[in-house]
């Protein structure tokens, strides 16, 4: 414990020393490390995010050996230095261009892992079937740690030896700024009260989106059917970039072919940079149904002109269109992160 606090104090001194004329008193967040009996913890190294830069790093690590082969997690803490765009934790499944063995060794505190910076870490097909474990988009100075206690009786199940990937995205440019250094931490607290209901996750995204000068306020919507069974939504959040104005998620009956009524809406956020993570939802989805979500956008003039947008546009339109992509400055997303119980499948919709 004292070592951690000493490290944090050293980080504080380093942060202040390397932040030039930034006079804001910054106190690094502190998450206490966990013993193996308490769960699993990792801390990424600190890294610079240069002015004008947008970076994405992927950290791979395996769930350590467990006495009974399984780690049941019923409380999650996710911490980020200010300036992060997102932190996503996935289970690694199909390997394509992004492989843990291609990474550089990295000390993640509670475990050893590998790190891949940029490159394949930006390409979403690489993790298209990697089930979501947890995510966080809150990284304010005042509230750097997101803590979530899962519903009573519910826990996330991780197998010993299972490969996980923590992905962190930082921006220090026109749309978001990183005043200090980038850094992330995860605490997965072991359930000790006999939770047996497994938490499931859903990740959904809209494909081929376009937000163009000539059609500046488009809305995209889609439905995602759940597998057979009864499901209760425990938590959810939406994700888009700075052209995003409103993100909504509805319970969908799985029959209708149009957007559900407003009365079915259980999530709405208008904060693109720090979108709300709604917990404690307890929304029962209709049997045989699923969710429906919408992303409403408002086009805005890109800070650095339309050239980069045009280059990324599959149609190469001169209409200055933001199209699907991971870069906050030049592209857009429309993603749902949702947590439900009991788990019937790892759900991906795209």
């Amino acid at each position: 414990m004292w070592m951690t606090r000493l490290t944090a104090a050293a980080a504080l001194v380093l942060a202040l020393a390397t932040c030039g004329d930034n006079q804001s008193p910054y106190e690094p967040w502190i998450l206490d490390p966990l013993t193996p009996a308490q769960g699993l913890w990792i801390r990424t190294p600190e890294f610079d995010v240069a002015p004008g830069a947008e970076i994405q790093y992927c950290y791979f690590f395996q769930v350590p050996a467990q006495a009974d082969g399984t780690l049941w997690v019923d409380r999650i803490e996710l911490a980020l230095n200010p300036g992060s765009h997102h932190m996503n934790l996935f289970r690694v499944k199909t390997l394509r261009g992004l492989k843990p063995t291609d990474g550089s060794p990295v000390d993640l505190g509670g475990v050893q892992g590998t790190e891949i910076r940029e490159g394949e870490c930006w390409k979403s097909p690489n993790w298209s079937d990697w089930p979501l474990v947890a995510n966080n988009q809150q990284s304010s100075i005042d509230n750097p740690i997101f803590e979530w206690a899962l519903p009573t009786g519910v826990a996330q199940k991780l197998d010993a030896g299972e490969m996980l990937m923590l992905q962190i995205h930082y921006v220090n440019a026109a749309t978001q700024d990183t005043p200090f250094k980038g850094r992330g931490g995860v605490n997965l607290h072991r359930s000790t009260d006999g939770d047996t209901m497994e938490l499931g996750t859903l990740f959904a995204t809209q494909q081929n989106i376009r937000i163009c000068r000539s059609n500046p306020a488009p809305t995209y919507g889609g439905g995602c059917a759940m597998p057979q069974g009864t499901h209760t939504v425990a938590a959810a959040n939406g994700h888009f970039h700075s052209r995003g104005r409103r993100f909504s998620i509805y319970a969908w009956d799985g029959v209708s072919t149009s957007r559900p009524p407003d009365s079915a809406r259980f999530y709405q956020s208008e904060a693109w940079a720090e979108p709300d993570m709604a917990t404690g939802l307890n929304v029962q989805l209709p049997q045989g149904g699923g969710i429906y979500w919408t992303c409403e956008y408002q086009w805005s003039e890109p800070a650095d002109g339309c050239e980069a947008l045009q280059a990324a546009d599959p149609q190469h339109s001169t209409d200055c269109c933001y199209t699907f992509g991971p870069k906050v400055e030049t592209s857009e997303h429309c993603n749902v992160f949702l947590y439900y119980w009991p788990k019937t499948a790892d759900v991906t919709c795209f």
Binding site: Q206, G222, G223
Partner: peptide, 8 residues
Amino acid sequence: TLTIEERP
């Protein structure tokens, strides 16, 4: 309905 989408 297995899948549904609306777009401009």
